[in-house]
């Protein structure tokens, strides 16, 4: 089975937030909320500074605490690519998943259910990239099957240094950042 993931090149990302807006428009995210966001981390004293800019979102973890803690089964692994989705009709808005997520990737939709990144599965199932990937003016984001050794994402991980976010949480995240 495929394992969908993203590989994001922090050397190219400029933090413009195009991915955030593309997601909001594509998925009709209510005003004041977002499913993806930019983090800028800088270290050092002026002028010797190291800076990493990252676009972040749900990591679609292989061992996802949001799935295991969900009392109704609304949070689940989708049968395509292991993508984590929330079934809005089954969600009771208890927020257990929000508390369990190390990435703070979820929010309560004004209509009462919990919402988050879907990897734009509705686009992916038609053979398109997620909206954030296809809009990016720096071409810094890559989406694909991490279990396929020939995919772009697997090849990039073979050829470049990378890290994931909060690996110590042990959730096996599926988003990797090239450095």
């Amino acid at each position: 089975m495929a394992r969908y993931g993203m590989v994001i090149d922090t050397k190219k990302c400029v933090g413009c937030q195009d991915c955030v807006i593309a997601c909001q428009a594509e998925n009709n995210v209510p005003q004041g909320f977002c499913r993806d966001w930019i983090t800028t981390e800088s270290k050092g004293k002026f002028p010797t500074i190291e800076m990493e800019i990252r676009t972040e979102r749900c990591n679609h973890c292989t061992d996802a605490p949001c799935v295991s803690c969900c009392p109704t089964g609304a949070s689940h692994y989708h049968d395509v690519g292991g993508v984590i989705l929330v079934n809005h009709d089954e969600c009771i808005g208890c927020k257990a998943c929000i508390a369990s997520c190390p990435y703070d990737a979820r929010y309560v939709h004004p209509e009462g259910y919990v919402d988050k990144c879907t990897f734009c599965i509705h686009r992916v199932e038609k053979g398109e990239d997620p909206a954030c990937v296809s809009v990016c003016p720096t071409y810094c984001m890559h989406f694909g099957d991490l279990d396929d050794p020939n995919s772009d994402v697997s090849q990039l991980l073979k050829s470049r240094k990378y890290h994931s976010l909060i690996p110590e949480a042990g959730t096996k995240p599926n988003i990797f950042y090239l450095t």
Binding site: D9, V14, C16, P137, T138
Partner: peptide, 17 residues
């Protein structure tokens, strides 16, 4: 990158690549 004149930023990214 902060100035987002689109084609220039795209080309900037290709140059970095």
């Amino acid at each position: 990158g902060e100035n987002m004149h689109n084609t220039q930023v795209q080309e900037f990214s290709h140059a970095i690549e």
